[in-house]
Amino acid sequence: MSNLTNKSNIVSNKKMSIWEKMYLPAVVKGMYITFSHLFKKKVTLQYPEQTKPFAEIYRGKHVLKRDDVGRERCTACGLCALACPAEAITMIAAEKKNGEEHLYREEKYAATYEINMLRCIFCGLCEEACPKEAIFLTKEIVPSNFERQDFIYGKDELVETMDNRIDISKRQSAEVLEFKKNKNFKHNK
């Protein structure tokens, strides 16, 4: 059988020679490697003070988007919850009443929308399943917490506010951005 990688060593029981039994050359060789690392670039990062740059499409905490006029895009279709491999998403839908046209985009909206961040594996399948461009993952990290209950994020934490909008255009493919330019389509109105 051939090896999958060339990193494995073949172990044998062969007798060591006197030169090898002295161990001294091996010790020197080991120390040389250790000291040589003193002069190399450090790989550790002083975390809270220093941070690593995030990728543009880092998958962190979710956001529920609003459209240009501030209406919630989510229509509680349940496709994100269906796509979710960890079953982290739950929602309850409600019907839009008269006078709520400025709050919700569609006839139906999510009255409650909860993501259990302990279950979530940040795979981004919810984002991919969403037909309404409502849910996206952001560069924000989900902070640690003491209570399990505090990891269940409701709409108060997920829906973006109009004065602090999150730009997600980097996460969308060129085809989607091209499609969005055509304002004739109902989806883009």
Binding site: T75, C77, L79, E106, E107, K108, P131, K132, K186
Partner: peptide, 11 residues
């Protein structure tokens, strides 16, 4: 057909 399957109960 409006293609509002995300809203429609029949979907």
């Amino acid at each position: 057909h409006p293609l509002d399957c995300p809203v429609c109960d029949q979907a």
